[in-house]
Computed example of a mutant assay.
Amino acid sequence: MSENICVGVISGSYGVQGELRVKSFCAIPEDIQNYTPLTDEAGKRQFALAILRPIKNGYSARLPEVKTKEEADALRGTKLFAPRDQLPSLPDDEFYHADLIGLEVYDTGGELLGRVKTVQNHGADDLLELQLSNTSATTFLPFTKAAVPTVDLATGRIVADPPDGILPTPKSAPSED
Rank of each mutant, 00 (worst) to 15 (best):
I28N: 11
L113R: 06
T118S: 03
S11M: 12
S2A: 03
E104P: 00
R157W: 05
G114H: 12
S24M: 07
R53K: 15
T138P: 09
S13I: 00
G8H: 12
R115L: 10
S11I: 01
P163D: 06
L128N: 02
P149F: 07
A82P: 04
K79D: 10
K79S: 14
S175H: 11
D40G: 00
P83F: 08
G77E: 14
L141Q: 05
A82F: 04
T39E: 03
K23N: 05
P37R: 04
K117Q: 13
V119K: 03
D177L: 15
M1R: 07
I158W: 03
A48K: 12
L141I: 00
P29T: 11
T139P: 09
T139R: 12
L103R: 05
E19S: 05
L80Y: 15
I166E: 14
M1A: 07
A137K: 13
F81M: 03
D93T: 08
A137W: 10
E65Q: 15
A61S: 12
F143C: 04
V9Y: 00
P91Y: 02
L75A: 02
T169G: 06
G110D: 14
G18L: 12
G114V: 06
C26D: 03
I51E: 01
T169L: 10
G156R: 07
A124I: 03
A137H: 11
A173K: 15
T150Y: 10
E111N: 14
G109N: 11
G58L: 14
T36S: 05
G12Y: 04
L113T: 04
C26W: 01
V159F: 08
L49N: 08
T150N: 04
R157A: 14
C26Y: 00
I10L: 13
I51V: 15
G110I: 14
E71C: 01
G109W: 09
L87Q: 03
D31S: 15
T139M: 12
A72L: 06
P149A: 01
N57L: 14
S2P: 07
G12V: 01
K23Y: 02
D177T: 13
S13A: 12
L52P: 00
R21M: 14
F140L: 15
L20R: 01
L113N: 06
Q17D: 13
T139F: 07
A124Y: 14
P37G: 09
